[in-house]
Simulated scan of single mutants.
Amino acid sequence: MTNETTSLTYNLGGDLQINRLGYGAMQLTGNGVFGEVADRDNAIKVLQSAVEQGVNFIDTADAYGPHYNESLIADALHPYKQGLVIATKGGFNRPGPNNWVPNGKPEFIEENIEGSLKRLKVDAIDLWQLHRIDPKVPVEETLAPVVDAVKAGKIKHVGLSEVGIADIERVQKVLPIVSVQNLYNLGERKWEDVLDYTTQNDLAFIPWYPLASGPHTLAEKIEKIAAKYEATTAQIALAWLLKRADNILLIPGTKSISHLAENLKAAEIELTEEEFEQLSA
């Protein structure tokens, strides 16, 4: 199912009007998403260029670096342009490169929230997302400091990441959420049911790793469609996601200013119903 005309904006949480093609900052870190980015000056230019080109939704996390990514965003963009929405996440320990350990202990989550506020230089986080539900800690306990932070005005909206429908419904009993960030792209659609659920329940769906252009079986079809639009396969993959559902917010990441401009141009591609169906098959 798709909408016939694709809206390029989305109202997140009822009060944040954002452009659906945003930017994911994870790549602006060291190898294995660990440590400082190799070329900091370039990273700052990429972030500034994104905002100059109309991006007003940037996704980061306490765990990227850890900590370095949030500080980089503040160094590049603070004081923030009016309307710029910065989403961050908490709930991962980072013992080393490519090493991600869920930590849902309430004191750790509280530390994440306070650290993000400081590093991003904000009084309130626009969207705070639980990076993962820790199987060792009841999610109600994990979220207790999040509930407190919302009440204190330190967090405006809350989201989840890599969750199923049952997880979403369990969390909704604790506090309202406005978004779900799961792995989803042209070639990986295991969260199709969650995407449909978010669409029906007016929640944003933020696919991570959105640039993957799918299995080899799709290669020929994508190349043919890309040639018609004089586009790259990555642009077609993003255009397919934009058409898939109006609540999908895209956060492709890159360290390159030219790739950034290329990704943002995907918003200009309106696939036909037939092309969409060919790629969805």
Rank of each mutant, 00 (worst) to 15 (best):
P97Q: 03
N69V: 02
A212V: 02
D193P: 10
V101C: 09
V178A: 06
I236R: 03
E220K: 14
E274C: 04
H157R: 08
M26H: 13
E277P: 00
R94G: 00
L120A: 12
H78Y: 09
I206V: 15
L77P: 06
G164L: 08
K136C: 05
L238E: 09
L12R: 14
Y23P: 06
L143M: 15
L271S: 05
G115I: 12
Y10G: 11
P106K: 03
Q278S: 07
L127N: 10
I177W: 09
R244W: 14
L211E: 12
Y229F: 14
I168W: 02
T6E: 08
E273I: 02
E275S: 09
A38Q: 13
D62A: 02
F276K: 05
G96N: 12
R189C: 04
H78M: 03
K45V: 05
L271T: 04
D196N: 15
Y184W: 05
S179N: 11
D126L: 05
A61H: 04
D167C: 01
G22C: 10
H78G: 08
N98Y: 15
N19C: 01
R40W: 01
K243M: 11
K105W: 02
P145W: 00
V180F: 07
E52A: 15
T2G: 01
L238S: 07
K81E: 15
Y68F: 15
S213V: 04
A149F: 09
E140P: 01
I269T: 03
G187C: 06
S179P: 01
G253Q: 03
A237Y: 06
L143C: 09
K105F: 01
K265Q: 13
E192N: 15
G164Y: 05
K221E: 13
K136H: 09
P215L: 00
I257T: 13
E262M: 07
I177S: 12
I44V: 14
A144D: 13
Q235I: 02
I58N: 02
I251W: 04
Q278R: 11
A50Y: 06
Y10E: 11
L12C: 03
D202F: 09
V51M: 05
Q200F: 00
R132A: 07
F108R: 09
Q172Y: 04
L264W: 05
S256H: 09
G13D: 00
K105S: 13
S49P: 06
Q200E: 14
V147L: 08
V178G: 07
T6I: 15
K89R: 13
P207C: 03
H67N: 04
A267Q: 09
L238K: 13
E140W: 00
I257Y: 00
N99G: 09
A144E: 14
K156Q: 12
D148V: 02
T217R: 10
T2S: 12
A61K: 03
K136P: 01
G115H: 04
H259F: 08
L241G: 00
L175V: 04
L120M: 04
I113N: 03
E230A: 12
S7G: 07
A87H: 07
T272M: 10
I133P: 00
L160E: 03
T88N: 14
N263W: 05
E268V: 02
G164M: 04
L117H: 10
G24Q: 15
G65Q: 11
Y23L: 15
S116Y: 09
N19G: 08
L218I: 11
